[in-house]
Design a protein around this nucleic acid. Structure first.
Length: 481
RNA sequence: GGCCCUAUCGUCUAACGGUUAGGACGUGGCCCUCUCAAGGCCAAAAUACGGGUUCGAUUCCCGUUAGGGCUACCA
């Protein structure tokens, strides 16, 4: 029996959750759930200078909003905690010491200034910048003494001088990198905190992570991690490096060229269903022509084998289309809840739920964002204050007033006010006046909503109700006179 | 600069040696229609380039080009 699958999402708490981060989290989650495994959230806060207040809470909150639940993580202890690296410092220190004892790592006393100088010289000579291994072969007695004296130092891992390292990536296949292009990487900083490279290996092993699914930017440093696994004598996990998310100009997705925080899209009114669906398809597809997927669908279908290798441009237009699709899939009762809040925010009188649901059904197939319900068809909730001046010429031509007046009279006499009875009355009137139905329909819509566009008139009138319809038509006749 | 990764319509992508290179978004047109959407139909639109391998390359190999990533006591 093979070990249960365990994956993790390991962001550093430096601000808002990036959409690229959300996708990494999502793929990890999908992979875990698809295989009945565990999804772990681990916070990589080993850089104290980059810490941002409230970032962890924000991260967790955004993940939860998206529906990506973690099985273990901060505030959700499994048997592998703590899940915040700054609370695991002893672990890293003891492991660094273990490596030093084994001769796989060493103390380095080089000052940042010296390193800077070395780097500058190398660049001047057009050599690839890398640590010159100045402290690598210091006698043990000397370095131990200097440490004991309290001299500032870091710990560096020893990378073999010659040879190369080949590993298999689940997405990219075999990748080979020569040892000589690898630095003797710092694994423990002078402040006693580990660098990413040590912490990620120690924790992934300690937390029994079986698959490391992360962004492509980690591909070049993976050999260092594998070396560490070998030094510790541990089995290494499988690696899968995801393609990057790109700006429209194909550079790495960044601020400057639009929004990158999940939060931004959320406040823009995108549904979590649309965002999750969209992001899942940036680098993955089910292999057939379906493309509207719920999170549950994705769990069912996801596989690493169908993840592509090339970067994907984050293209908002398709996301917008998906938002429209998912709005139509949402139960009207749920949408009505959101709409009620928006109506309240507008300061309008909040109608009863049944009415809101009918209004939602009327507009559901015509909106892209939830607030279109109130921005685009606010007249369903409040009498129009203005009449679109640009539409007036077309929607309120000569003779419109007479026809609307005549229709008002007919409607007042209706005992049953349904779209069918309204349509019948209007068509009959049109026939009698010898005009096309449209010549009454358009002015009436304009009178009722102040707009030239909207849902089917008869259905709209039924939802509005007789009293409102008559009131607005009379009022419009005065205002538009 | 060095190393690594990548390369199909504008964009997301399908095709895992043999297809008229398929779908979706977006764009244009038509239909439907009381308007706007939605929906339906149609159209324009791609294998970066050059060499191989093969009876046959989008597909495999090499090179070129382009893009990206990495090259910190950041992750």
């Amino acid at each position: 029996m093979s070990a249960p699958i365990r994956v993790r999402f390991a962001p550093s708490p430096t601000g808002f959750l990036h959409v690229g981060g959300l996708r990494t989290a999502l793929y990890n989650y999908l992979f875990a759930k698809h295989h009945g495994g565990a999804f772990v959230l681990r916070i990589e806060d080993t850089d104290q200078s980059r810490k941002v207040e409230g970032a962890i809470e924000n991260l967790i909150q955004t993940l939860q909003w998206a529906g990506i639940d973690f099985d273990e993580g901060p505030g959700k202890d499994g048997s592998y905690g703590p899940y915040i690296q700054s609370e695991r410092l002893n672990l890293y220190r003891s492991h660094a010491e273990q490596l030093i004892k084994a001769g796989k790592a060493y103390f380095c006393f080089c000052s940042p200034e010296r390193l800077d100088e070395v780097r500058k010289k190398q660049q001047a000579m057009k050599l690839p910048p890398s640590y010159d291994r100045h402290c690598r072969d210091l006698p043990k007695e000397e370095s131990d003494a200097r440490v004991a004296k309290g001299e500032p130092h870091v710990v560096r891992m020893k990378v073999p001088i010659g040879g190369e390292l080949t590993f298999t990536d689940r997405i990219r296949g075999k990748v080979t990198i020569a040892h000589k292009v690898l630095d003797d990487q710092v694994i423990l900083k002078s402040d006693g905190f580990p660098t990413y490279h040590l912490a990620v290996v120690v924790d992934d092993h300690a937390m029994a992570i079986t698959h490391v699914i992360r962004g492509e930017e980690w591909l070049p440093s993976t050999p260092k991690h594998i070396l560490l696994y070998q030094y510790f004598g541990w089995d290494q996990p499988e690696f899968a490096h995801l393609p990057l998310l790109l700006n429209p100009d194909k550079s790495k997705l960044s601020k400057r060229q639009g929004d990158v925080a999940v939060e931004d899209y959320r406040t823009k009114g995108f549904l979590k269903e649309a965002i999750v669906n969209f992001i899942a398809f940036l680098g993955w597809n089910p292999g057939d022509e379906r493309e509207i997927f719920s999170l549950e669908d994705l769990v069912k279908e996801f596989s690493l084998e169908r993840v592509g290798k090339a970067g994907a441009v984050f293209n908002v237009e398709k996301l917008t289309w998906l938002n429209q699709q998912h709005i139509r899939l949402r139960p009207s009762t749920e949408l009505a809840r959101d709409v009620r809040n928006l109506v309240q925010q507008k300061g309008w009188q909040v109608p009863e739920d049944a009415y809101i649901i009918r209004a939602v059904d009327l507009m559901k197939e015509r909106v892209t964002f939830v607030w279109d319900f109130v921005e685009f068809s606010g007249y369903l909730f409040v009498d129009p204050e203005t009449f679109d001046p640009d539409a007036r010429a077309k929607s309120w031509p000569d003779g419109a007033a007479e026809r609307v007046k005549a229709l008002t009279d007919r409607l007042e006499q209706l005992t049953s006010f349904t779209h069918a009875s309204i349509e019948e009355a209007l068509k009959k009137l049109a026939e009698e006046l010898n005009v096309k139905a449209g010549q009454i329909v358009h002015p009436t819509r304009y009178a009722l909503s102040g707009r030239s566009v909207g849902p089917g008139l008869y259905e709209m009138m039924e939802v509005l109700g007789k009293d409102t319809v008559i009131r607005r038509m009379k009022s419009a006749l005065e205002k538009l006179d």
